[in-house]
Design a protein around this nucleic acid. Structure first.
Lengths: 246, 246
DNA sequence: ATACTAAGTGTGTAATTGACACTAATCAAG
DNA sequence: CTTGATTAGTGTCAATTACACACTTAGTAT
């Protein structure tokens, strides 16, 4: 039946990743193995014009020339995946210190006709107030698109964006991810709008406020926001100290 | 303020992954870029002896020689990441058709002293009834360990296992992932035990049964399971047709 | 028949979710 | 300075869900 017995170790074991199958590790020779290219793609999303939008770039060469795609680039040999994602973010926008999360790694052979490319996809949420597409970039080749009205996309980037949206919606329920799309101070209505735009359905104002306020993650700044000819709204600030599960 | 205007496309765009940054794509030459090695590691978990256990292999060479590690190996140029994970699974155990999920990709430079290695970690759940460690493997170098009493691990595999356990616990709540650890037919008590072992706490028998049965994902087989000198338990079968959210 | 063991079952309470409509504060226009 | 327009802000009830908790049932062994 079972060849191996159960073992118990003492614990711990802290160091670094990577592992190579026994047979190969035994006679290791890096040069023996042909290596794939590794890229990072970054799905950058932001709320603009009361819409959830994603930054895309227009491809200028084969393959999929002229089609829109998720921005990405090669991982340098001396940088981490996250660093590469941040660099990509920096190259396309001017923002730093944004929410950045690894999403998924796609690596089927033959997906890129040029060579074997494995791509690690990251996902970034940007506060549109701080946002500014990098000047100097050819505006015709970079653009924000509503996730609800996407153009034809290169590779299977449409699938990746769908996956991203699903993940964002999931995380919205049990994390505080939404605050990354808002400036430091915001009104409850603005926060509710974030949820409504992402979930793509209306929420009840009273229930929403009750729920958010009951968690204690919001701090009243005392300030108010006047916008238009009506009653001003309280401005709140996110309080990360209050560790709650939404 | 904003350099780019919002665009709207028509939709669709189905094809494949991979994307290369504009500047690079424009003057593409694959040979120009030094490439990292890419491996897949597979965290294989199973319930054995009323414990949640993970398969580890003992490293036979530098680095971390003699330490236990998550099994893994290089991705061949012509196979997908998932295929590589399945191959690894096949090499270590004899099972096929198991639950397999991509977990996370680790790729910090310098983590493997031999060369730059990016590893895509998969996560497999095995039904211990079908399970059998591959004969011919040196038993001293492969073993099952309780996730609650791990030995010292190579690289940062301890962190990866912690991450895996967190993910498993999370998914247990809102998916039907637990059934992958059981044979086709099982009793409610056995199912409850799966939850208890993974969550590492006792659950109330009545509430557990009420909840599971109310979802309709279980089908009574009519058969009963006698085990010991007491009342026999009904045997159930998982009914994937009943699309429910646990 | 009796003792032993795990299977199987229901009720009451607390907490959570969701539906739903009016009053309050400000500005603009007359 | 009153009126209208507009969005901010607030509470209650009902249904559902979560959780705590203890006895009866069906089988085996002696």
């Amino acid at each position: 039946m079972e060849e191996t017995e159960t073992r118990e170790g003492s614990a711990s074991g802290e160091s670094d990743v990577e592992q190579v199958s026994e047979a190969q590790a035994h006679h290791y020779d890096a040069s023996k193995y042909e290596r794939p290219s590794v890229t990072v793609d970054v799905v950058m999303m932001s709320l603009r014009q009361r819409d959830l939008q994603v930054l895309l770039v227009k491809r200028r060469s084969w393959p999929y020339e002229g089609m829109w795609a998720i921005p990405g680039g090669f991982v340098n040999m001396d940088e981490s995946l996250e660093t590469a994602a941040k660099r990509e973010l920096q190259e396309e926008t001017n923002v730093q210190d944004v929410y950045l999360e690894q999403l998924y790694t796609f690596g089927d052979p033959g997906r890129d006709p040029r060579t074997r490319v494995i791509t690690v996809v990251y996902f970034a949420l940007l506060d549109s107030e701080r946002l500014q597409v990098k000047a100097g970039d050819d505006a015709a080749n970079v653009g924000w698109f509503s996730v609800y009205h996407l153009p034809d996309l290169a590779f299977d980037h449409a699938k990746i964006l769908q996956y991203t949206l699903d993940r964002l919606r999931g995380k919205l329920q049990y994390t505080q991810i939404a605050f990354n799309l808002l400036p430091e101070q915001f009104t409850l209505r603005e926060l509710q709008r974030v949820y409504e735009i992402i979930l793509h359905r209306r929420l009840d104002k009273r229930n929403f406020r009750k729920k958010i306020l009951s968690t204690g993650i919001l701090e009243d700044t005392g300030a108010k926001k006047m916008e238009g000819t009506h009653r001003p709204a309280r401005l709140y600030r996110f309080n990360p100290a209050a560790e709650t599960k939404l």
